[in-house]
Write a protein that binds this DNA or RNA. Structure first.
Length: 478
RNA sequence: CGGGGUGUAGCGCAGUUGGUAGCGCACCGCGUUUGGGACGCGGGGGUCCGCGGUUCGAGUCCGCGCACCCCGACCA
């Protein structure tokens, strides 16, 4: 399995990423180009992410449902911007049961259309609002260039779709869910994210406004890690989602949609991973703890395993893996579990049996510094504290890394320099032309306009020098 | 869709002037090992990407396909 060292990140970041995904057993390539198989270890991580997200959705009043994967092609023509945005990447079914279909069916790339259609049937009165539904689903987008987790033809995600009786309420919902994503990213994944508004060109096809959480990866490129869209009345008008208000007048609904996908697994990998492999945040890791027993002979083995059993019994509240394989050495196991990113390793050998100790090695620190002794007695609280420490220090390290790679660009030359290895924070006039020029000339795109904007006082656009309206981040992105 | 690259054992690769396929790792068995990627001995595993051609003979030469990977334009 893990027979060689990984390609170091500094040598080839992309190669490092691919190797980590494959060798940590998160995923594998599928027979169809651009498709992937999420393997049990990767899916276990996704399940933990789902659990934390789903809990937050429920807490904010949402319920889950399931909508069909096949959508009539004509649905995509009802919203002008939506069709323009998605037409090039639709997978279309034209034959069913051996017969050419009267109307081709699109495999959903996202479900605003079919859900909008259903909402128009379900919503009659202001009393029916708001409708707050989420679905966990897979979707298909025929991407040109794919990469494991970050961009595959098929991916797994959740998509929330809500309908409201006022613009204000829809806007509140849009921001509420963006905040849910940010809270999840920071608290559970230890991925520090910046919340903000997307530019006109970067927004979702058919939205009035798109908000995103943006994360910085280990190579300083940006990753859009989750999005929340205020759809205004665009889809309501396209799909005739109307209700009677208190005054017996027909009104169009105001809708939102928001999504976070398995792409976020890529964010976790690239935010925390090092040259030894994955580093998973304790709150999401499939295994929080791996126990490696060490012994030389049967006598040692029985006393060590007895101690291991006692330790295990104390740790039932955690996700624990006992690696009792006999065919590989402890050293091999250390490397393998480090590759797989398990946050805490407990080694138990003859010396520990003697001293009533366990050797604890934290994954987020290198070499000798990672190791410390714990007492077997009353182990659970020690482990609990350690896991919390690891979680906190991972967030701190990622935040420090991000902040030290964001720089203010006061001129276009500075911007060009900064985006070679970081994010540039600049004043921008708001014009799509400047944005396009910068993208063309530097490969850097606008990420988002952060919420906490400084006061504009006669600032100049970093590109054209005209009067600036917003501070915005520019960077290379995935 | 443009540019580049690669298709030979599960993975990574070698294969000479064309002569009937090999190495490392992984895998299986036995034994010795086990506190930072153990070792010895034995073993199993191949439509050489596909189709067609040249030839007594093709992994190797020629033609046509196909697939995948990497880099661009597009995107979560």
């Amino acid at each position: 399995m893990a027979e060689e060292k990984l390609t170091p990140r500094s040598e080839n970041y992309s190669e490092w990423y691919n190797q980590v995904v494959l060798r940590a057993d998160l995923a594998d390539y599928a027979p169809v180009r651009g498709c992937m198989v999420v393997k049990p270890y990767g899916w276990a991580l996704w399940e933990n992410m789902q659990k934390e997200l789903d809990r937050r959705f429920k807490e904010t009043g949402h319920v889950n449902a399931a909508f069909p994967m096949l959508i009539p092609k004509s649905f995509f023509e009802k919203e002008k911007e939506h069709v323009e945005g998605f037409a090039p990447e639709l997978a279309v079914v034209t034959i069913g049961g051996g017969q050419e279909l009267d109307e081709p069916l699109v495999i959903r790339p996202t479900s605003e259309t079919v859900i909008g259609y259903m909402y128009s049937k379900w919503i009659k009165s202001y009393r029916d609002l708001p409708v707050l539904i989420n679905q966990w689903a897979n979707v298909v987008r025929w991407e040109m260039r794919t990469k494991l987790f970050l961009r595959t033809l098929e991916f797994y995600w959740q998509e929330g779709h809500t309908a409201h009786s006022s613009a204000e309420e829809a806007q509140e919902e849009t921001i509420r869910m963006l905040n849910v994503y940010a809270d999840f990213a920071i608290k559970e994944a230890a991925v520090p994210v910046i919340r903000g508004v997307k530019s006109e060109t970067e927004k979702f096809a058919g939205a009035v406004n798109t908000y995103s959480i943006e994360a910085m990866m280990g190579d300083t490129k940006a990753l859009q890690a989750g999005t929340s869209h205020n759809l205004g009345q665009n889809f309501a008008k396209a799909f005739d989602i109307k209700y009677l208000d208190q005054n017996n007048t027909q009104q169009y609904c105001w809708t939102t949609s928001w999504g976070l996908s398995t792409r976020f697994i890529g964010a976790i990998i690239m935010t925390h991973g090092d040259d030894n492999g994955l580093i998973l945040p304790p709150r999401l890791a499939p295994y929080q703890i791996v126990i490696v027993p060490i012994y030389k002979n049967d006598t040692e083995r029985s006393s060590v395993m007895e101690a291991v059993e006692k330790v295990q019994k104390q740790l039932t509240q955690f996700r624990v893996k006992l690696d009792d394989r006999t065919e590989v050495t402890p050293g091999f196991k250390y490397n393998e579990w480090e590759l797989k990113g398990v946050p805490l390793r407990l080694e138990i050998g003859p010396k520990d049996v003697e001293k009533g100790s366990v050797m604890a090695a934290r994954r987020d620190m290198p070499g000798k510094a990672s190791k410390s002794f714990m007492l077997q007695e009353n182990l659970a609280p020690q482990v609990q504290t350690m896991l919390e420490t690891i979680q906190a220090s991972m967030l701190q390290r990622a935040t420090d890394f991000r902040d030290s790679n964001i720089h203010e660009a006061n001129s276009y030359d500075e911007l060009k320099d900064i985006i070679q290895n970081g994010w540039a924070e600049s004043w921008w006039c708001g014009s799509a032309e400047c944005e396009a020029k910068i993208k063309e000339e530097t490969k850097a795109t606008t990420r988002c306009m952060p919420f906490d904007q400084p006061q504009v006082k006669k600032e100049k656009c970093v590109y054209c020098g005209a009067e600036a309206v917003k501070k915005i981040y520019f960077s290379k992105a995935y």
